[in-house]
């Protein structure tokens, strides 16, 4: 009996079952915690509910409902910035979530620092608007799919069907690949080089240099959206969307939208 238990197949089966078991248990407990947090929210205990939601986020859970509810809990506590961060996180995962989009619009209307939208939008801004309708993963999958299809059609055109129809298909696919790849690479470039962040403190002073003793250029208020351009110790260099304003703020005054 002992030799059977020590058989390699036994170990593999045993570990597989335990892996499935513990993974399932952890996820089920997380769902229970979310349910409890929802109950707390419904009973008006927003501070405790947001604490439980945040705990799940810290554990690595990423779900539109979790971020949406956390955003609501922060909204109820007048923490507009943190609410905006979480609504934006929902829209990163599920761009067509109407509830979060409505709440985000409401939260953004409460932000003190309002900056006018640039009249002449660049082609980059135009490409970035696609994120209102599709996630980065969806766009990248579409671009890759078109590119692979282009490869297949090209091969058929060269080797099998050297026809006008194939030539036209190739032309249309080439156009599609160029556009979708441009959208995808623009989004990726924007995410990598200038990730979006939100001011999450009532007031954040923006300094000319990463130093408290330096002069204050201007102040930003809770909920203002910025783009991160650089880091230095406990300081972050930010720039405002649609303007040339930039400066250094304390890193704990803002929170990145992208979930690591």
């Amino acid at each position: 009996m002992t030799s059977r238990l020590l058989h390699p197949s036994s170990f593999i089966l045993f570990f597989l079952l335990f892996f499935v078991f513990f993974t399932g248990q952890a996820h089920a407990q997380a769902t229970d915690t979310l349910t409890v947090a929802n109950r707390l929210y419904e009973h008006g205990n927003y501070a405790e509910s947001s604490r439980l939601y945040q705990e799940l986020v810290t554990q690595g859970y990423s779900d539109p409902a979790l971020f949406h509810n956390l955003g609501n809990a922060y909204m109820q506590q007048d923490e507009i910035g943190r609410a905006i961060v979480n609504y934006k996180r929902v829209l990163r995962i599920d761009p067509r979530n109407a509830d979060s989009r409505a709440n985000l619009a409401q939260a953004e209307s409460s932000v003190v620092s309002q900056f006018p939208t640039a009249e002449n939008q660049s082609i980059t801004d135009l490409l970035l608007t696609t994120t209102d309708y599709a996630t980065r993963t969806q766009i990248s999958s579409f671009a890759l799919g078109l590119w692979l299809l282009w490869g297949a059609v090209y091969l058929l055109y060269r080797r099998v069907w050297h026809t006008g129809f194939m030539r036209l298909s190739l032309l249309l696919l080439t156009t599609g690949v160029i556009i979708s790849a441009a959208v995808f690479f623009t989004i990726t470039w924007a995410d990598r080089t200038q990730p979006e962040a939100i001011i999450v403190v009532p007031q954040a002073d923006v300094y000319a240099e990463a130093n408290n003793a330096d002069r204050v250029l201007f102040a930003l208020y809770d909920g203002t959206a910025v783009h991160i351009t650089d880091h230095a110790a406990d300081w972050t260099n930010i720039t405002l969307a649609g303007s040339d304003l930039s400066g250094w703020v304390a890193s704990n005054a803002l929170e990145e939208v992208v979930v690591d």
Partner: peptide
């Protein structure tokens, strides 16, 4: 404010 969303059957990481 739009209400909170119900917990999914399984929360994914």
């Amino acid at each position: 404010l739009r209400p909170i969303l119900a917990a999914p059957s399984l929360l994914e990481k």
